[in-house]
Amino acid sequence: MDVAIQEVVRPASIAEALATLARADARPIAGGTDLMVQLRDGRRHAACLVDLGRLGLDGVRRDGDAVEIGAATTMDAIAGDAAVRDWFPALASAAGQVGGWPIQCRATLGGNLANGSPAADTAGPLLIAGAGVIVVAAGGRRRVPIAEFFLGPGRTALRQGELIAAVRLPLAETAAGRRVVERFVKVGPRREQVISVASLAGRAVVGRDGALEQVRIALGSVAPTPVRATAAERALSGRRPDAVARRDAARAVQGDIAPIDDVRAPARYRRIVVAVLLDRFLREVERG
């Protein structure tokens, strides 16, 4: 069945897109893998859809000391990109686990973020990378740190009429003799085509003595937004990820999350899953 819209606009430039998006009844559409479902179910309404497919917002490029990923880049392209796989393996891994392959060939990075779901799988990898979201509006551009982008379920820092143009990930050089372990793992009823019950993105830099010089942990589906697990990170800082440190981290991480009961899982289960995912990640870091 047709979705209930009155108009679709297919602009050829960002300026043209922004001009239409100034209308209160207009909404951008990228891959449509969230929006088409929401329009169908009546969870969202729009009189006018602005198709972002012709704006040249797709592609991954190296820009100085950062990698910039266009908002319209698909999950399939991100998962297969050599620079992303080398520098940001957690992001490549997450992109390859969004839905199934036909979803990944449509779903975009910008749509995943703008949809504002606490379960957005690319959010955790971007949080541990310290990424910036490049936002454009008729008045100019601004850069929103990913940690300030998500405001609540379905709510983001984007204002009416604004577009995500790209996401910028700073490259982190690793000093000699250091070991980096970066992972993304999600838990759900099956591996593909499911929204995460909980997910963890982790990045650890291990010194020659086996101690954690840096550890960043982000969690999905266990709070109103994707979150950095700062209490767990503090508990681990400078320590070897041995059994004692892992136990302390598993305790600390409970303060980082505020899971709810929903159709996918009870809150109590999510708390246990987070502790297990964190423990597994840290064991992997310890083993090397």
């Binding site: 069945m1 979705v3 679709v8 559409i29 891959g31 449509g32 893998t33 088409m36 479902v37 169908r40 859809l49 198709d51 399939d76 839905g99 199934g100 392959w101 036909p102 979803i103 060939c105 449509r106 085509q193």
Partner: peptide, 23 residues
């Protein structure tokens, strides 16, 4: 009709997509 089953998959510019979610 919601992207979950893949029965509607077609190739769009050579890659598979669920046509129920493509405008």
């Amino acid at each position: 009709g919601a992207g979950e089953c893949g029965a509607c998959t077609v190739l769009l510019d050579g890659v598979p997509v669920t046509s129920c979610l493509v405008l």
